[in-house]
Design a protein around this nucleic acid. Sequence first.
RNA 1: GGGGGUGUAGCUCAGCUCUGGUUAGAGCGCCGGCCUGUCAAGCCGGAGGUCGCGAGUUCAAGUCUCGUCACUCCCGCCA
Length: 586
Amino acid sequence: MRRTHTCCELGANDAGAEVVLMGWVQRRRDHGGVIFVDLRDRDGITQVVFNPEVSSMVHEKAHVLRSEYVIGIRGKVEKRLEGMANPNLKTGEIEVFATELNIFNAAETPPFMIEDNVDVSENVRLKYRHIDLRRTLLQKNIINRHRAAASVRQYLNSRRFIDIETPVLTRSTPEGARDYLVPSRVNPGLFYALPQSPQIFKQLLMIAGFDRYYQIVKCFRDEDLRADRQPEFTQIDMEMSFVGEDEVMDIAQGLMVKLFKDVLDIDLNVPFPRLSYEDAVGRFGLDKPDIRFGLELVDISDIVEKAGFKVFSDAVNKGGKVKALNAKGCLNFTRKEIDDLADFVSVYRAKGLAWIKVHEESWQSPIAKFFSDEEKEALARKIDMQAGDLVFFVADQPKVVDEALGHLRNLLGKKRGLIQENTFSFVWVTRFPLLEYDENEKRYQALHHPFTAPLEEDYDLLEKDPLSVRSRAYDLVLNGSEIGGGSIRIHQKNLQERVFEALGMDRKTYEEKFGFLLSALDSGAPPHGGIAFGFDRLVMILCGQSSIRDVIPFPKTQKAACLLTNAPSEAGKAQLEELSLRIKKL
RNA sequence: GGGGGUGUAGCUCAGCUCUGGUUAGAGCGCCGGCCUGUCAAGCCGGAGGUCGCGAGUUCAAGUCUCGUCACUCCCGCCA
């Protein structure tokens, strides 16, 4: 028996043909006399008919068929009679009358039905992932993932990029996320780290003269999981020599255009708009703004600085600020709804959410009484307050204000239906701060990574005022989700040393950790830069999914476990012995 | 590390709070029977439960209390 067609190919034109189909029994409808089987494979479903008048032997045999049995059938394609076609099936015009049945394998009753609209709890799905993956939706997602990867490779290949592999067993670097460590058997007590990204290697490849590199590559970060974060994830990683921001962004935009055309047949408009980090945070509160809708934040610090409302004026005087968000037309929000929103912003450490309801003649608000008529007028003008509006305020340290209102903005956008579905709204965010201050560790940290080049005009600030140094980093944001980020790198040793020092590393430390990179920079390093995309997130968006797990064949749970294989698991005594490891009993 | 949600039949859930009380229900699936035009087939019958786990309170716990585990969403974290 040799397969002649897949389960979605046959149509009315094939009537009369003898075919062989193979696949899984999606469903069986046994009428005693005639038995219908929906035969499923990767591509679709075809109805197979077992009719005793065609072959009583085969019909008899078909009685044992159950869901998920794997079978092959030989049979004759027949056009269905008038009124019996199934418009829901691609192959609904025809059916195949079986003359031969081969049962390759029986199957246990599946733990859940192989259907898209059945929602099954995550742990059951993950435990039986091989069955979950049979559902059309996941099959589509995984196939789209493949198409996306193919599209990326095609695009980059055509633009002189070279696919080069980099090591998975590498060395731990001090900055960044927690590393996954791998013990070295032949070097007792020493460890490799799995790469958080191929960052340094791709820079070394530029120094080696490969000019343009890319890789679709697994990266590993041992941090807590989210709906859009897995401990191992895939990046589209690329790097180019002799370029500045514009060249990298052009290539990245071209890649998105190609990707969306190939996978979704959507034409994107380029170039994508650009926002400086300062504007993004100023207007939208977040460095990954969702620009599909307005509802921008307004800084009113200058108006309320001297107002009688202590919460506002104190915040400004202590180095914080006050910002407003005008929820146009939300006057009808109930007290309960507003309280819920206050709870919502408290998650982002906002201590309160002040509000004003703008009626025709007056304001309804717990805080209105604290403002003079002049201040009220100034507020109304700056925030564009009109009857029917509901204005929210947060006063706090700048970071808290922006994050709280930024997330509130996204929530209101969703809640008010301001977000048009099926639109893809890209925006570049540029000129990130080079460094930020880590309150916990009491030191400066690279916002992007320590190899990111500062803006040339800000070099002098590296020593004078490190926090105000801006970088040549850029993120690509899609619908409020960061899908990629990169930068122009430092290609000169002495600038790299200055940045290490700004980060609080002494010469000894950076010589030890990054000596090889510094020496490489001194060996003839071209100017270079690149970008990396979160491939899983991109595919998630391309597939219209809300969890990254639905586009990853074998994802891990929030505790980073694989429920299918039960990884991670204990290591045997002998294994530990070989690795010179002893497990500390807790 | 912290906060929220969920956990009852193979699956999805009701029952659980205010108010603990007979034999824990439903739909789908499964098994058996009938059935030659269904495509979520139909009709009849049946099986199926450690109420996540462990303590406690009580005459009595799916239900109340405490702990614990798992899944999930979020905060922290994620160069």
